[in-house]
Design a protein around this nucleic acid. Structure first.
Length: 427
RNA sequence: GCGAGGGUGGCAGAGCGGUCUAAUGCGGCGGAUUGCUAAUCCGUUUCCUGAAAGGGAACACGAGUUCAAAUCUCGUCCCUCGCGCCA
């Protein structure tokens, strides 16, 4: 959520910025908010004045009583106030809530460097890495190959859990753990702290970190409980600092979250998105940064570098996209995606998303930092995929499969693979 | 889950219907003093609104009683101790 103060003080700039998103309804919301806000402030004044009056009379009663004077007149006067006050308080509160909800649906202000564009096509490729030349054999579908090597069992996973669930076993499961271990080790060495969060969050905390529509579309609610399964560790790690004031000296806070993630809405279109691509449950290693506003741009580049390094180490061809105004989403002020190469489909698919959320999440969650001089300000939050495991497994299976139908393990993962360098059929 | 006790400012901790403008202590920040440090002293240290003066709110959260609630009542959440259950 954008800080109300900023909209009040720089309305025209905010409007100009939001216009870049090419969604007229956002501007409508902005204007509604501004009008409501004016009214709310007026009402607040009135309420405060009424309260002041009440406080005065209350004080008079106290004094009169102490002096043993007659207080019936004062009491009559006082008795009238609560009714009017209550009515006004209710309208004020209602308006306040309404306006907060509007504000929550207004997206973040965009960074200057975000390119103008309509939809996905407007995204800009800023870097490419790796060899994407055609292989001299037919690349097999990752899920089918894994099943034929007896390291995945989609059929039985679906049997017991339903569509959108998977099971991997043997060396592929080992590879899963190897990637996790590798990613965590890499980030830990760079100063990130490993955090394993709860996989469920209550409604209040969750409202601080997600779009309200997500409660209907994305999140699984626990029956009869006030809890939701988390869709990413970004949510839990960020929400954990809710209502906290962090000393400037403690920034930046660098965290690497590892969690199982649960998502209701996954879509699914065709063979190549079957298998390890769109899932109701998957594990992911995530980078989270809390920092001072002036440092967030630098950290954005840093976490991009971390993610790129990992993909390079796994020897997967990839490209980096700078997401345009038409495709950026609500929360981010600036966003990069990493897409990796699918030699089977001969196109890139998305594996990483890296956002600088500036003060947007911090404002909603009320996370501030205290400066040396005692002033308090909202800090900046960034989140980035380090590696979403199933998608990376798909990339590895596709890019490192051999003519003979085995899967080579990238060298970087050898130390975590119990001596195995290849996944092949057990005799 | 049951029983008992409890949740007060950054922390510790008093207050238990109107003197709460929340005591006191510690810590933080600013300043004074001082060869340096320490000690001492003064100020400041929640949020909203307002250009400011000011006003308002806040004692876990929500509702209620009252002219008036940190203080009384109810509900929810959380913590501590004991019992029960459990990987």
């Amino acid at each position: 959520m954008i800080e109300p103060k900023i909209i009040r003080e720089n309305y025209s700039e905010v409007k100009k910025n939001l216009l870049k998103r090419q969604q007229p309804e956002i501007i409508e919301k902005l204007d509604t908010w501004v009008n409501n806000d004016k009214e709310w402030r007026k009402l607040k004044q009135e309420v405060d004045e009424l309260r002041q009056e009440r406080n005065k009379i209350t004080e008079e009663i106290k004094i009169a009583k102490a002096n043993k004077k007659d207080i019936t007149k004062l009491l009559d006067k006082a008795k009238k106030i609560p009714q009017t006050l209550k009515e006004k308080e209710e309208t004020t509160k209602k308006l306040e809530e309404e306006n907060k909800n509007i504000l929550m649906t207004i997206p973040n202000l965009l960074d200057e460097s975000v390119p103008y564009g309509v939809g996905e096509e407007g995204n800009i490729v800023i870097r490419k890495w790796g060899d994407i030349n055609k292989k001299d054999f037919e690349v097999k579908h990752h899920g089918q190959l894994a099943e034929s090597l007896q390291v995945a069992d989609f059929k039985n996973a679906v049997k017991i859990a339903g569509e959108g669930f998977y099971s991997i076993k043997g060396d592929l499961a080992l590879l899963n753990m190897a990637i996790v271990q590798y990613a965590i080790e890499k980030l830990t060495k760079k100063g990130f702290t490993l955090v394993i969060p709860p996989y469920m969050m209550n409604r209040t905390a969750y409202e601080g970190v997600t779009d309200l529509n997500d409660f209907e579309n994305v999140m699984y609610k626990i029956d009869k409980e006030n809890q939701y399964l988390t869709a990413t560790s970004e949510h839990s790690l960020t929400a954990m600092l809710m209502n906290e004031i962090i000393d400037e000296k403690e920034l930046p806070i660098l965290q690497v979250g590892y969690s199982m993630n649960f998502r209701k809405e996954i879509g699914k279109h065709g063979l190549d998105e079957r298998g390890l691509f769109r899932l109701h449950q998957f594990d992911k290693v995530e980078q989270i940064v809390f920092c001072k506003p002036e440092d967030s741009a630098k950290w954005h580049e840093e976490i991009l570098k971390n993610a790129e390094e990992l993909v390079k180490d796994l020897e997967i061809p990839y490209r980096v996209l700078l997401i345009c105004t038409g495709d950026i989403g609500t929360v981010a002020s600036k966003k990069y995606d990493i897409e990796v190469w699918s030699p089977r489909e001969e196109k890139y698919f998305e594996t990483h998303s890296l956002s600088n959320c500036t003060t947007y999440q911090a404002t909603r969650l009320n996370i501030k930092y205290k400066k040396q001089n005692g002033e308090k300000e909202y800090l900046h939050t960034l989140n980035a995929t380090e590696v979403a495991i199933p998608r990376m497994l798909r990339a590895i299976i596709e890019n490192h499969q051999t003519k003979e139908g085995t899967i080579k393990i990238p060298k970087a993962l050898h130390p975590y693979m119990l001596g195995k360098k290849e996944i092949k059929l057990k005799k």
